[in-house]
Design a protein around this nucleic acid. Structure first.
Length: 257
DNA sequence: AATCTCGGCAACCGCCCCGAG
DNA sequence: CCTCGGGGCGGTTGCCGAGAT
């Protein structure tokens, strides 16, 4: 069974998107949603294949995309998650609010791989027998590490991310990260922005999973107060729960679509 | 000032998975 | 159970801009 590539059809445009095309795609999806990506370009009047439209929307036009440089915290999170999940960019993206798999993949290949490579060099030349992490060997590394976290974190069920796939990823990358249903990793504090909070709070409001923090009384009342706990595991679980509850385990529901 | 080199990023390609018929 | 089509994912490419020479 050989299927012709979807863009093989004559007359379909390839290459960079114009602002006009972007506008057409945005307004169409805002009006009608994207039930069927293959049919979408025809209905919207775009000379693009469905895949191209989908990619453009997912990676660039979606309203919940966070633009701009990755923070150090995000980069560290990517490194940690990559260690856990391997090259499963979509799974990693699911844990980084507002970031796309493509973006993360690019950052990995352009920045983080080099950084890790550099760190490994330093590590192997300076402390080859120690059990220091590569990150802690980086003189520039800002240490966001908590004490090593043991958690029974269950990867959020989504189309591309379930327990078995995590295990597969671990096997595929040769990492034996999951033992006795516990994942050992170093969790950085994620950068929290307003969209993250609104999603976390709306997840709370949906009633699916009760959030246990209370509304804050600081300047921005949309920001809840963090739970105060002396138990580091609880604190870390709180952060991870928030990520998961924020609905990034799959394609987020977009308001109004 | 012109040319070259390199890095970053958007987009494409092809394969895989899964659900419907 | 098998086939087919759509969606999703990861790898790769190629363009463009910035910095170096």
């Amino acid at each position: 069974m050989v299927r012709a590539p979807c863009c093989d059809k004559m007359g379909l445009k390839k290459g960079p998107w114009t602002t006009e095309e972007d506008q057409v795609l945005i307004s169409y999806i805002q009006k009608y949603g994207h039930g069927n990506w293959r049919a979408l370009p025809k209905h919207a009047g775009l000379l693009r294949c469905g895949k191209s439209c989908r990619l453009r929307w997912i990676n660039y036009l979606r309203p919940d995309i966070k633009r701009g440089n990755f923070t150090r915290e995000e980069e560290d999170a990517i490194i940690n998650l990559h260690e856990m999940l391997g090259n499963r960019w979509s799974a990693i993206a699911a844990r980084l609010p507002g970031r796309t798999d493509n973006e993360i993949k690019n950052v990995w290949h352009t920045h983080l791989k080099k950084r890790l490579h550099k760190n490994n060099k330093i590590t192997s030349s300076t402390c080859s027998t120690s059990n220091l992490t590569s990150q802690s060997a980086d003189p520039e590394y800002v240490n966001f590490e908590s004490p090593t976290m043991h958690t029974s974190m269950s990867p959020q069920p989504s189309s591309s991310d379930d327990v078995s796939s995590v295990n597969n990823a671990s096997a595929a990358t040769g990492h034996d990260m999951i033992k006795d249903e516990k994942i050992e990793f170093v969790a950085p504090f994620p950068e929290i922005d307003d969209s993250f909070w609104s999603e976390a709070l709306s997840a709370d409001n949906s009633g699916d999973i009760p959030l246990e923090f209370s509304e804050g009384t600081n300047d921005d009342s949309t920001h809840p107060q963090f739970p105060v706990t002396s138990n580091i595991d609880d604190g870390m679980n709180f952060w991870f729960d928030l990520f998961i509850r924020a609905g990034h385990g799959g394609t987020p529901e977009l308001p109004g679509f």
